[in-house]
Design a protein around this nucleic acid. Structure first.
Lengths: 330, 330
DNA sequence: ATGAAAGCGCTAACAT
DNA sequence: ATGTTAGCGCTTTCAT
């Protein structure tokens, strides 16, 4: 197919090791020969074979980014940051999404291991991290790590939900619903905990009837709203586990002609790009997506460059409340 | 690092070729031995090295998906379809975005060639396709191909804009603005052509003052709306080159308290996921994103599997008008 | 500065 | 059914 260094060497009547040296800018080739080699390489349309190189250098110059769902703009934004950062440092990123399927996640990890990626950034939902460590390559988890020999970057979900709920309370809303995802998600647990904390700090208890769970979609949010409505228990605000869900709730509240934010308050989570859009203007807890992506990539690449010297780190960012038009301004 | 087939062979006192055969499910190994091999491979935590395999099979089982911008949900949705389809057929996808930078695009193509990807799906914006053909691997363009030895999948943009404009006219809007992106984008040219066609079919001419160009963002859309407004030329409808732009226009029209759709009609393009969202309900021209992604991947993989027998195809899909609440229902 | 040779981990053609 | 051998295209010692 494409020319090889041996082809070039033959053409020039020299050894392929000289060609390799020249092409890689390594010392040990006279300027004259180097020029000739570079020229013929160009002429012959030489394209280095990364697989062959990787086989001997034991570096693929590739990292993997594994998340549950790329339909979620939140992950897409992080992916983008990871990709740019890695690219700037000469690495290619392979992105995988696994539809929240743990089996699939494991398969992907195995596949990436086969491809000999140099490192992995992963939003995992397993409890056990040992299989990640066993990979023998640097891993940065986008969840709190359960082991100290693993790096992680996370955002304080308990704090985030706490602050969001505090805000809702301070706005004067009396009966706050919590609309989230599946119970098995750690994210759900943490945000629900923050929610609970904030309420109890104001001597309020969680009204179980005002908690509804589904998926991370606006359809699910709408469904939950209707379910809550059906119970007859009054509620005048909702904290949603993410912005997609909030969108569905928003829609239903509008359908019911509830005045937002006067008669109904709504807070989302993640500050997805559409939350700030003119027609949405959703109050939400922002996570520093850009920062997360850049940091994750840089941390991983440092780890790859020097596994010994680079320390494992567990970074926890703080979320930030962004008040828009779905809650009262104080 | 990880065990190799030779390690396994040594452990069992046999040759590595038998190990290879067993691991790959090829004939020529007794069931008993095969079982033993599989077992020790498992025990030793063997992970095949895809680079080594690829080097000899000349297949990386990887394809590349190259688009201008992943901040654009349109491309993300296609990417998702491509990824799923490829994954189901055993291929990994590497996604690249190049911020509409042609130099960067070329770099990425070169890099992917070095990685020896088995094929490329690309939304390219170059006029010259020969360098794609020269790659010597299957390529599916997401633009009309300029050569017959290249496959392509495209959606009829002229038709789409034509139909959208027709709809606007039939709704009774009198002064229709066209808000788009840069002139150098083929997409712009095509959609503008469709726009012009529809107008002239109704004996109307394009009012140059009602044409505004910027980027594919809602900020740009808003800016264009204001610019149009500043000219003083009245307009009661707008066809936007994509939904992001339409969003910005939507916002400004609301700001001006124009009744939508009664006093102002708005049509977007692409049917991005937020267009159908409860609070947006934007009339738009939908492109079969899912279909495009799946088809592109399948076509490419067929081409990879059998370059000889699989014919190059140039598929053109038809877009579909989705009427929502930003234009009158007839 | 250049060349010779070994080997990365694997598949595959050819023995036996 | 199993073993032997020869590469795939490259980097990297070690000679010269």
């Amino acid at each position: 197919m494409s020319a090889t260094i041996k082809d070039i060497a033959r053409e020039l009547g020299i050894t392929h090791s000289s060609v390799s040296r020249a092409l890689n800018g390594k010392p040990g080739v006279s300027p004259a020969l180097r020029r000739k080699i570079l020229e013929t390489a160009r002429q012959m349309g030489y394209t280095p074979n990364a697989m062959a190189r990787g086989l001997v250098t034991r570096q693929s110059m590739t990292i993997a980014f594994i998340v549950p769902d790329f339909a979620n703009p939140f992950f897409v934004e992080i992916a983008h940051a990871v990709n740019s950062t890695a690219s700037a440092r000469g690495f290619t990123t392979i992105m995988c999404d696994n539809q929240w399927d743990h089996e699939e996640e494991l398969k992907q990890i195995r596949l990436m291991a086969e491809k000999r990626v140099d490192g992995i950034i992963i939003k995992s939902f397993g409890e056990d991290d040992s299989y990640l460590v066993d990979l023998g390559i640097p891993v940065v988890k986008l969840n709190p790590a359960t082991r100290t020999d693993l790096s992680s970057i996370d955002v304080d979900n308990v704090l985030g939900a706490f602050l969001a709920t505090e805000h809702l309370i301070q706005c004067g809303y009396q009966h706050i619903a919590f609309i989230g995802s599946h119970t098995d998600a750690k994210t759900f647990a943490d945000r629900f905990e923050g929610f609970t904390k904030a309420l109890s700090r104001h001597d309020r208890a969680v009204d179980e009837r005002l908690v509804c769970q589904g998926e991370y979609t606006h359809e699910s949010g709408a469904r939950c709203y209707d379910q809550l409505l059906a119970t007859g228990v009054p509620f005048d605000a909702a904290l949603c586990e993410n912005d997609m869900i909030a969108l569905g709730v928003y829609d239903r509240a509008m359908r019911d002609k509830r005045k937002i934010p006067e008669a109904f308050g709504l807070v989302g989570y993640d500050d997805m790009f559409f939350a700030g859009l003119p027609m949405t203007q959703l109050t939400t807890m922002a996570q520093p997506k850009q920062k997360i992506g850049v940091k994750a990539a840089n941390l991983l690449l440092d780890l790859i460059a020097d596994p010994e010297k680079t320390k494992h780190r567990n970074i926890v960012y703080k979320p930030e409340l962004i008040i828009r038009k779905t809650t009262k301004t104080l």
